[in-house]
Simulated assay, not measured.
Amino acid sequence: MESKVKVVKSEKSWIETAAIDQLEKTAELEGIIKAVGLPDLHVGKTPVGAAYMTKDIIYPHIIGSDIGCGMALFSTGINRGKFKFDKMFGKLFRLGGLENIDISEKIADIDLPFKESLGTIGSGNHFAEFQEVSEVFDEKAFEEIGMEKGSVYLLVHSGSRGYGEYIIQDCIRKHSCQKGLKTDSTAFNEYLEEHQKSVEYARLNRELVAHRLLDTVGGKDDKKLLESVHNSITKKETEGEIIYIHRKGAAPSDVGYIVIAGTRSTKSYIIKPEEGLYDYCYSVSHGAGRRWPRFDCKKRLQHVYEDKILRERKLAGTLICKDKNVVYEEAPEAYKSIEKVVEDMVNEKMIKLVASLNPLITYKV
């Protein structure tokens, strides 16, 4: 009998045993018919870099609090030759925080909770990053997206801020949703309605983050070129039945081209998922995936970067943040190799490469 748990990794890839154990334990829940651990799989409250397929039941706690979290790639209207690093870094550094850009007119008619948090990045792995095109692997696909080699782009990774947290806590309190919500229940309908609002909140949030940053640097365009949501529960009809795809730090394979983010000092990749991918719960990796938890990074790296000048040049040269610990948390050593993650999926025939992007400036305030 074929196992319902699949882990995508090669012999050279590293995935901690605890993450695989978490995945297998979660897969034992009632109604889960398939589970996949992607190459960026790592430990979380529930494993991150994982997707699950269920029938007749959903589990809100699997995707957790940041409902709708995802990545969106925006055009900027800025030519790479005119993107002067020192000038742009200075403008962003002096901004002090996205809340200093007024968006009251843009959200005046928005009827959603937690409006005051709209247009902010949030903590953890969230970021906004100006990027340049490094290499194009598929010219036709690149042009189809509407991209140009000499342009600067903005990648925004953020979610639903406090809204998603409110939804999951309310659902746990009212319905003990960690035990699952049957699809014929009132609780199921209530949760999915709020879930969808939170997804839309997160989409709007990314757009407003882009607006604020591009307003700061004098961007002339903020067209959204690509977007994928990697924390969500999605209804899907396949092989004649209704299933629900739970993605926790996993990008959908059925929405077209997407960005897989690297670390703050390595490439990101635009990829095209192959069609089908039923065996992978219609999902692909969303990023490099953490090797170490955030709280552990400073202890591990402080001795490596003892010299202040070296530390600032190596870790903080292109990163704008308020908390100095973030410099360690975002160090390349704290993440898995994005090249290995991408390579594993190419070898598995899950994706095709379209282009790679280099980071220019990362904003995490």
Rank of each mutant, 00 (worst) to 15 (best):
S123F: 04
G70H: 08
L118Q: 07
G317K: 09
D86K: 14
L204T: 03
I58R: 01
G70V: 09
K179F: 13
D184A: 07
E343P: 00
G219Y: 02
L92P: 00
S176K: 15
V199G: 05
D21Q: 15
N231M: 11
A250V: 09
P273M: 12
I63D: 02
G97A: 06
S158P: 13
K149S: 06
E333M: 06
A355H: 11
S198K: 09
G81Y: 05
S65N: 08
I233K: 04
E343L: 03
A355N: 06
Y280I: 00
A355I: 01
G240H: 14
E2T: 14
A50K: 07
E24T: 12
G180Y: 13
V327S: 05
R300V: 04
Q178E: 15
H126R: 10
N100W: 06
I271H: 04
K84P: 00
C69E: 03
A250K: 10
F93S: 02
N231V: 14
V48Q: 04
Y328R: 01
K340R: 10
F93C: 00
I121Y: 10
I242G: 03
T46M: 02
W292L: 12
G81M: 05
E28R: 09
P332N: 09
A187W: 08
R294T: 05
A210Y: 09
R94A: 07
G81D: 13
T120Y: 04
A72N: 02
V43S: 05
D323M: 00
Y153C: 01
A27D: 03
N79K: 13
K272E: 14
G219A: 09
E2Y: 09
A251I: 12
E227P: 02
Y52T: 06
V304L: 12
V152E: 11
L73D: 08
E105T: 08
A141K: 15
D40Q: 02
I242F: 05
K324Y: 14
Y363A: 00
K235T: 05
G90F: 07
E165F: 04
E333L: 00
